[in-house]
């Protein structure tokens, strides 16, 4: 009994330490937002930065259930939103896959050594059908080239 108690308290103490260490880690984490992405011009994401760092996967996970099972698309947290906002473009206005090791998701996940497999299935660049004229105008104003071809092997888009 006493042994078990001791062991339990040891575990508890070490858990506290792990948590504390993470907080430090999070505080030290550098900024991975890529210059030239829309996110770079914003003060914070859909939640304060700290909260996003710690919780973004939870947000996306809840979103994934409500989107896939209930068809809710218009919520605050969406992977599509992440990609749209954090994507950056190279000199030729080509979108850079967000999971690449020098891009927003890829760089931070490499730093944190956490597997990132969202983009096994999800589009790692905005890859959508053409937008209407108004949206296109807005894009041009932002210097985003919409004729950027997607990776569709030359088909369609």
């Amino acid at each position: 009994m006493a042994k078990a108690l001791l062991r339990a308290s040891l575990v508890a103490v070490s858990l506290v330490w792990v948590l504390a260490a993470q907080t430090v880690l999070a505080a030290e984490v550098k900024r991975y937002v890529v210059e030239g992405s829309r996110a770079a011009e914003l003060d914070s994401c859909v939640e304060p930065t700290e909260r996003m760092r710690r919780m973004h996967f939870e947000f996306i996970k809840h979103q994934r259930i409500s989107t896939v099972h209930q068809g809710i698309r218009g919520t605050k947290y969406s992977l599509e939103g992440c990609v749209d906002c954090h994507i950056s473009y190279d000199a030729k206005s080509q979108p850079q896959p967000i999971n690449r090791s020098d891009q927003f998701c890829g760089a931070c996940h490499a730093y944190a050594a956490v597997d990132l497999n969202c983009f096994d299935c999800h589009a790692s660049i905005p890859n959508k059908p053409d937008l209407d004229a108004e949206a296109q105008a807005a894009h041009r104003a932002a210097g985003v080239d919409l004729s950027a071809p997607s990776d569709r092997n030359g088909e369609g888009h």
């Binding site: 914003l42 599509e80 749209d84 906002c85 959508k128 937008l131 807005a138 104003a141 932002a142 985003v144």
Partner: peptide, 9 residues
């Protein structure tokens, strides 16, 4: 945001 990159901004 769904409308496209940069639009809302």
């Amino acid at each position: 945001v769904a409308a496209g990159v940069g639009a809302a901004m």
